[in-house]
Amino acid sequence: MIQDELYDVGLGQRRTMFGPQGAEGQVEHTSDLNDKLQDFVTRYCFGDIWQRDGLSYAERSRITFAMLIAQGKAHELRVHARGALENGVTPLELREVVVHSILYCGIPAAVEGLRAVEEILAEQGIPQQLDGESDRAQRVAPGTE
């Protein structure tokens, strides 16, 4: 792969979002089989598109996470949940993307998105108590308000 400014910026973005394993770890395992994909992802995805003005990294992460839910991409959901947290997306915002996806992607897709969020929060030791919504729902049973 040719290393130039676009490539270096992309590798830096991958490192910021996914750590060395998601940057150098991916690139160092480049082979004749996957070299074009790795170059495209590093250079154009993270070195170009993710660097554009108009959306913050957090906004791009929320949008990416929503699109991955819609496509049912389980592995990439987990990768981008980690990246979203690194880009400043809160666990509450990730949950809300999942909840919103119920309307437009369906329950099975939302369940997969929620599994990804739960797994990554547990992996990173982040509590899953976000806003007390589940506690309030349990205190007020339907029809007893």
Rank of each mutant, 00 (worst) to 15 (best):
D48S: 13
D48I: 14
D48E: 11
D48Q: 12
I49T: 15
W50P: 07
W50D: 10
Q51T: 15
R52Y: 07
R52L: 13
R52G: 06
G54M: 08
S56E: 08
A58E: 03
A58F: 04
E59M: 06
R60I: 03
S61F: 09
S61T: 07
T64P: 05
T64G: 10
F65S: 03
M67A: 11
A70N: 14
Q71I: 13
E76Y: 04
E76V: 09
L77C: 03
V79G: 02
H80G: 05
G83P: 04
A84D: 10
L85V: 08
N87W: 01
G88Y: 07
V89K: 12
P91S: 10
E93T: 15
E93H: 11
E93D: 13
E93S: 07
L94C: 06
R95E: 15
R95F: 05
V98N: 15
V99S: 08
H100R: 08
H100F: 04
S101F: 07
S101E: 06
I102S: 12
I102Q: 11
I102E: 08
G106S: 00
G106A: 02
A109K: 10
A110C: 05
V111L: 15
G113Q: 09
R115K: 12
R115S: 08
R115A: 13
A116D: 03
A116P: 00
V117N: 01
E118G: 06
E119F: 07
A122F: 04
A122C: 11
Q124S: 07
Q124M: 14
G125P: 04
G125S: 06
I126M: 01
Q129V: 12
L130P: 15
